[in-house]
Design a protein around this nucleic acid. Sequence first.
DNA 1: GTAGGGTTAG
Length: 698
Amino acid sequence: MAVSLSLLPSKTLTATATISEFPRNPKTLILEQCKTIKDLNQIHAHVVKTGLLLNPTITENLLESSAIVLPGSIDYALAIFHQLEEPEPAAYNILIRGFNLNHNPEKAILLFKQMRENSVEPDKYTFSCILKACSRMQALKEGEQIQAQIVKFGFGSYGFVQNTLIHMYANCGKVGVARRVFDEMPERGVVTWNSMFSGYSKSANWEEVVELFSEMLKSDVGFDEVTMISVLTACGRLGNLELGEWLNDYIVEKGLTGNLNLITSLIDMYAKCGKVDTARSLFDKLPRRDVVAWSAMISGYSQASRCREALDLFHEMQMENVEPNEITMVSVLSSCAVMGAFEIGKWVHFFVKKKKMKLTVTLGTALMDFYAKCGSIENSLEVFKKMPLKNVMSWTVLIQGLASNGEGRKALEFFSLMRKKNIEPNDVTFIGVLSACSHAGLINEGREFFISMNRDFGIEPRIEHYGCMVDILGRGGLIEEAYQFIKNMPMEPNAIVWRTLLASCRVHKNVKIGEESLKQLVKLEPTHSGDYILLSNIYASVGRWDDAMKVRSEMKEKGIKKTPGCSSIEIEGGLHEFFAEDSAHPESAEIYDAVENMMKKIKSAGYVPNTAEARLDAEEDDKESSVSHHSEKLAIAFGLIRTSPGTTIRISKNLRVCTDCHNATKMISKVFNREIVVRDRNRFHHFKEGSCSCNDYW
DNA sequence: GTAGGGTTAG
């Protein structure tokens, strides 16, 4: 019986054909014109009624429409499938593909098992589909079993099957096996090579990608856009600008600049090779920018520490109504962390929640790191607890965050909890652990961890770990032992190591080793002004004013200028950057007045700037800069005139909080009733009601 | 009908 098309929604079936024409050209009719499940339902009903279900071509097309073409109708496909008495292999294949597309690889594997139980013979298509499912699931065991069956059924030499096999092994972490399959192939197409590239990329074997690419150039396969995307990604990771630029020329020459994915990988390559502005000009020329392109550019700025530009670009992205994803937010948060932009980052967290983004491990860890780097360890811990999945990095961030926020013991508690959960620590974890010992003054524990990391975990200490040990010993007053420790290091100590020792000498007033440290430092970094000042301050602290002045004049002779301290302050979400002696800031005059008023107030409340450093600096600096001598004071003052009492003022960047500043800030927090969070390199000082929570300040 | 690709945290 012919059914008139008027029974079906006119929007979807507009042809003048009738359903009776289905057997003649069923595919175009159903596949191309069926737009909703409702359409499908009507056709299905008709097919059942007219007995056409027995026609495998019709059924397969119905299945394909529901499992693959129409989104969200896989259950419908399954219902049709179950009505079939003896489904053909093709019917199974369609459903397996459908499950793959629907991100249900486990169901695909289950269906394949069912297929085998029902003794339905798989064909070559079945195997590519099912291997794809295994690859997605990282189901190595199943994949291996399937490889055995491929051989058994004689499909082992099919190119398509082998390509998926390579992909499956590589995605399951077996790049070596993937490579063996690759090497044993008598003929390799572009996709074969690309599958291998993707395998090496997945396991971060970037050198292998470039190496294999040069081999590919020697062969006569040629390469395509997909190849270039993989190779460009590798160039970025390796900093191989030369090859990257070569590919750029090729892309221009061949007129491939219209491929958004390709240009995005070019942008990523340039940004990661340090050519952020080149990346930006490519980005600006894009006729269309999707979320990945935006994210690549934002992360480019973020990784180049051009955080302000990263945030500006994120803002622009929102203006253009491009929905950011979890990955975008990771770079944005990382920028907030570096800048110490607490209010902005908190807003980002709110935004993430509002958009119901998934708290992935990466996003969660970026959030944790952001809170920890803004001195808000409670929030960091809260995010950690809410994360459904945590990895070594999440634990490491927590341990480091607790350590730098003065909770060394708690950091160590989390380290042992991490061990109980069988999370394997790595080299970075131990930097956190050692810095926790240093902050908590746990010298013996520090020594024990240092030995343990190699003995129990097979992690060879790097120079950073040696640096931590010097800090632990030096802060603990064991200056001589710290000095011997440096002498016995298996590698050449760097400036950071000697500077750590020098800083300890300043705390514990050790002139002799302090002098030796500076001698070493001058060899390594002769123009680092802070080092001379540290030694000068050591002399001052023991009353050797002449020597202190001598160091300062030596500096002058060598033409070494004090590098202006930079600080930034966040007030109600706005970020202001200050450099010492900075008169360029539009509010400078206002700030100067405010500083003077503030100084009057805190002096009348009992604050006397009287330390040795302050006295020396006052003699050293010209009058004009005496007010801005400590840029943090300036910033605090700016906060004072802009915020209401009770507002937390955050000061970040690489300031060094000297004793004088520390005391001044204490007074300010008391007199003006402010909570002030100061980030002094990697440590946080929380000033509240006239005292600071840190226990390691001298 | 079947295979490969760009952005992410310490």
